[in-house]
């Protein structure tokens, strides 16, 4: 089932266009990576989904219904720039934010007790936010985002500010929520975590979607006949053997190299060419990382043509 569908969204401000004909579909129970360089329009899109602002044209459907104020309780949003009231106590603040999302006080208290125990922060209830470290405050923010059990969770850079241990803790909570059926939109610049947890992605650049699909598809799409070869033997001999029909993209002293196959060449051709010179230990397809995909896609797009 489709959780969220954006249909040709346009949004412009006085002096620039933030979103230009942006369409995307997020399936229920998946983690969707919303990627793009700074200022590409991600935050504008997120704000439209959250009904903080409205689109100039186009529409957003949440579980098949046009967005309306009644959907606010079904969405959880962790903005990139996030904060809490410094002078308020942790417990009071969490209750307040939960009540704004429509939870009753009793229900919110009950759920908070559970979450605080699970994240091992149950001693913090009466602390003031200004007494907390940044990481501690981030944990509270995460809890207040998910407390009302939203069907759609929008997380903007959820791991920033966390140490690796807490980042993993949050990651496993995100995966748990996904298993429980929550649809998650993850906006991040951390491509490692995109590969790790996202099912599908959309890449927005200069207010347009320039790339979308499953993480696997997208990476394969950027696979350009490049192979990683590990071997024992002389690098010079290896390089010489690849004289024609192949291109040596990179090499290192540990006997590893990335080779691009020339027109009409296959992996078998590559093996036939190099086996006389070196002892081949491994040849694997070099699928570009999301990091590389991101850079290539954006740079390609930005090239004047």
């Amino acid at each position: 089932m489709t959780a969220l569908e954006a249909k040709s969204i346009h949004k412009s401000y006085a002096d620039h266009i933030a979103l230009n004909d942006v369409s995307l579909t997020v399936e229920q129970g998946t983690i969707f990576g919303l990627l793009g360089p700074n200022g590409a329009g991600k935050t504008s899109l997120i704000r439209i989904i959250n009904q903080i602002t409205g689109p100039d044209a186009g529409e957003v459907l949440l579980f098949g219904e046009r967005l309306s104020p009644s959907h606010i309780a079904q969405i959880g949003y962790l903005p990139e720039e996030r904060g809490l009231y410094k002078k308020m106590k942790v417990g009071e603040q969490a209750l307040y934010l939960a009540q704004l999302k429509g939870l009753s006080k009793q229900e919110a208290k009950h759920r908070l007790d559970k979450w605080f125990k699970r994240l091992e922060i149950d001693g913090w209830w009466n602390k003031k936010v200004e007494e907390l470290s940044k990481g501690m405050a981030q944990k509270i923010q995460f809890v207040t985002t998910v407390l009302h059990e939203p069907k759609l969770l929008i997380l903007d850079e959820p791991f920033s500010g966390f140490d690796p241990i807490n980042a993993n803790l949050i990651k496993s909570e995100i995966m748990r929520l996904k298993e429980e059926g929550t649809t998650i939109i993850l906006s991040t610049h951390n491509m490692g975590s995109v590969e790790e947890i996202c099912d599908n992605i959309a890449l927005i650049n200069k207010s347009r979607v320039i790339l979308d699909g499953s993480v696997k598809e997208v990476r394969e799409k950027f696979h350009k006949n490049e192979y990683k070869v590990r071997f024992d033997g002389n690098m010079i001999a290896f390089a010489t053997a690849l004289w024609s029909g192949f291109e040596l993209l990179s090499k290192n002293d540990d006997g590893e190299a990335i080779v691009k196959l020339g027109e009409g060449k296959s992996v078998n051709d590559l093996l036939n060419t190099i086996t006389p010179s070196v002892e081949v230990k491994e040849v694997i397809a070099h699928i570009p990382t999301m990091q590389e995909v991101f850079i290539q896609a954006v740079q390609h797009e930005n090239q004047p043509s």
């Binding site: 009904q51 903080i52 606010i72 903005p79 720039e81 996030r82 934010l97 704004l100 923010q141 207040t144």
Partner: peptide, 13 residues
């Protein structure tokens, strides 16, 4: 300046 505003306006007008 607290940056709590964005969280709040995602819940209320």
């Amino acid at each position: 300046t607290n940056r709590i505003i964005e969280v709040i306006v995602s819940s209320v007008r």
